[in-house]
């Protein structure tokens, strides 16, 4: 589904942040990417979603056999890629329900599928809210505006559940969440698990992985994946920290 080969990425005024990433994600798999601060985790998520602040100096990314890096952010979403932002953006004056409906209908329109009308969409989104234990009042608020940290993250997961992507990247969706919110978010993710749907879960801590159990764990440090393993690797990291891996490599 996703194949990253030798990806090198820099940002203006800084040396290369990603220095040759290789990663393959197959349908149905959950990959966790862990690593210390500044290792390039968020850069990887942003580049995959199409943020244009970066320069890609080498490498390719194939998503369902198309060249992901040549697509606009909206084309990537239409193809089924979704990024849950580490810092969800506030949109004062944009109604959350309207936003969700516009997003889903834009994607459906681009795919040649029938658009939802207001009533059907309302029913559809209410069911998703229930799964996330979110209040319906969320729909009438401005997108993320004045939301608490936890509410913003839940709202990201709500968007994911509405858009039903093929590949969802969760960029530190667990940071700033209390245990209840963490469980609700994990429940949302797990409800979307499907043999044809994949996840990349970017996180600092092993805790989230108790609830969203990964098939693979990768350690990203200094712009490279320095170790990959099964879910037990996350436990090892929790116990020993990142130091032993980073030192070993250097």
């Amino acid at each position: 589904m996703l194949k990253i080969e030798n990806l090198h990425v820099g940002v203006k005024g800084k040396s290369e942040i990603l220095q040759g990433i290789n990663l393959e994600v197959n349908p149905g798999e959950i990959h966790a990417i862990m690593g210390p601060n500044g290792s390039g985790k968020s850069t990887l998520s942003s580049v995959l979603a199409g943020r244009d602040d970066y320069t890609i100096s080498a490498g390719t990314v194939k998503f369902d056999n198309s060249d992901l890096l040549s697509l606009s952010p909206e084309e990537r979403a239409i193809k089924g890629l979704f990024l849950a932002f580490q810092y969800p953006v506030e949109l004062p004056g944009v109604n959350n329900l309207y936003f969700l409906k516009s997003a889903l209908n834009s994607i459906r329109r681009a795919r040649g599928e029938a658009e939802f009308d207001a009533l059907d969409f309302m029913q559809f989104v209410k069911n998703k809210l229930k799964e996330l234990e979110m209040d319906e009042a969320f729909l009438q608020r401005a997108v993320n505006h004045g939301f608490s940290g936890g509410e913003k993250k839940r709202n990201e997961v709500l968007q994911m559940m509405v858009l039903e992507p093929k590949l969802a990247i969760l960029d530190e969706t667990d940071s700033g969440l209390d245990i209840d919110a963490l469980q609700a978010v994990a429940k949302g993710v797990n409800s979307l698990r499907d043999p044809s749907r994949s996840f990349i879960v970017v996180t600092h801590y092993q805790r989230l992985l108790d609830y969203i159990v990964p098939d693979f764990v990768h350690v990203l440090a200094n712009g490279r994946i320095i170790k990959s393993g099964g879910k037990e690797l996350a436990l090892e990291l929790e116990e020993k920290g990142y130091g032993w891996l980073v030192d070993e490599k250097v």
Partner: peptide
């Protein structure tokens, strides 16, 4: 804000209009 809307599948023109 534009990037956020686009990343949800909303075309650039419509994203600008929303903002």
């Amino acid at each position: 804000q534009l990037f956020y809307l686009q990343s949800r599948g909303i075309p650039t023109d419509q994203a600008k209009e929303i903002l």
